[in-house]
Simulated assay, not measured.
Amino acid sequence: MTEARYKIVFDGEPMPGVAMDTVKENLARLFKSDPSKIDGLFGGRSVALKRDLPEEEADKYLSALQRAGANVRKEHDRAAELSLVATDDHPDPNAVAAAEATTTDVMSCPKCGHEQPKSAECQACGVIIEKYLARQAQLAEESAPQKAAAVAASATTETASPYAPPQAQVGEQLPEFGELKVLSTTGRIGRVRYLGWSMGLLLAFLPIGALIAGSMAVSTTLSGLLVIAACVALMVVSLFIGVQRIHDMGWSGWLWLLNLVPVVGSVFALLMLFMPGTAGPNRYGPPPPPNSRAVIVLAWLILLVPILGIVAAVSIPAYQDYLNAEMGQSAGIDQPAAIEGEAAE
């Protein structure tokens, strides 16, 4: 029996929760095609993206296209299964008749075509048949990449119909991890990287704070302008980091504005700290790369900041009480000596 063949059908619909523009960009990158040609696949009618595929290869195409956001399905390719190729159950009658009619083992030289009884050497041209076939196979392997490049170049020069399915193989997968950009509202970052980048932002503004403190001795106007500029820069960078963290949860970045609402902002800030992101790709891109060692160290440092603040709030007053007690004791010892001196006079 012939092997079942399948085709990949696309109705022009994206996967649930995936934006249409994202699907178009992913398909254009997968098929290495012009985005204007990809738009023709979203005309509202079914298009067979790939035909005549075995089940294993069809599953590979189906998985890759669904990860790209295209709502595709696998169907039996009935037209490909209707083949006139001879099988074991239905052999070619002509081949059977020819095999039965052959009474002697006769061969043809692969180089000159001379017919002779089977032999290792051609009686006409004298070529060693086994070595000649091995050399031809080696030449064919060496020329295969050049032929493939020529076929690909000729295929790109042809003017294809906008409704024709892309002809490129789905060989390129979506990137495993997204690209990290601090000063951007696109992309995703996880909880640990959100904490690490926030701590890095605070450390970066420490020298700026020292500069502002030094400028107060020169001019209050200059120090005021520096304070305003530093606050604006801190707010903008915090906005970029926060939006990317919200994208990792699969939500719109506009929700960052909830941080400015009293009470609600406190609850939403806790959600940004503790709520995990989506495991795989979402409509804002692939997942972020694994956390580096520096990011993990910075994240632990920012977690230690409130702990150190509590310790300081407890220990500093206790230390001040201890100093006051020491000063009181020393003052009590010096006072009688002063009174005795006055009495002696």
Rank of each mutant, 00 (worst) to 15 (best):
V261D: 10
S238E: 04
S266D: 02
A204D: 07
L234N: 09
I228R: 04
L304M: 15
L201I: 09
V227S: 09
V311A: 15
A299I: 04
V236K: 05
I246E: 04
L255E: 07
P288F: 00
R293S: 10
A213N: 14
N282I: 06
P287I: 12
R293Q: 05
L258K: 00
N282V: 04
V236P: 01
L222W: 08
I296A: 14
W300G: 07
V305Q: 06
A279H: 08
L206C: 04
L308R: 03
A279L: 08
L222R: 01
L260T: 10
L206D: 03
T220W: 03
P281Q: 06
I296H: 12
L303R: 01
R283W: 07
L201V: 07
L273F: 07
M275Q: 13
V227D: 01
A269K: 08
W256Y: 14
L303H: 06
S215M: 15
S223M: 04
L258G: 08
L271C: 15
P276G: 05
W251G: 06
R283Q: 13
G285N: 00
V264F: 11
S252A: 11
T278L: 00
L308T: 11
G277R: 04
A269Q: 03
V297M: 06
I307N: 04
M235Y: 11
L206W: 08
F205I: 07
S292M: 00
I212T: 14
L301C: 15
I302R: 04
L298N: 00
V232G: 09
A210Y: 14
L211I: 13
P288M: 06
I246N: 09
M216N: 13
P262C: 02
L226G: 08
L222M: 13
V243M: 07
G309F: 09
N291Y: 00
A230W: 10
L211V: 07
L255G: 09
F205G: 03
L255H: 05
L270F: 13
L203T: 04
M272Y: 05
I302T: 15
S252K: 02
A294L: 14
G250N: 08
I212H: 06
F205M: 15
I208V: 15
I246W: 00
F274V: 15
G242N: 09
V297Q: 02
A217Y: 02
M249L: 13
P276N: 01
I310K: 05
W251D: 11
R245V: 03
A233C: 01
V232M: 10
I246T: 02
G309R: 03
G224S: 13
I212C: 09
A312T: 13
L308C: 13
L271R: 06
G242T: 15
L226F: 11
W251P: 02
I246S: 09
P306K: 11
L206G: 12
L260A: 15
S215L: 13
V263M: 11
Y284K: 03
L308Q: 03
P276V: 11
Y284E: 11
G224Y: 03
I302K: 01
C231K: 03
V261H: 10
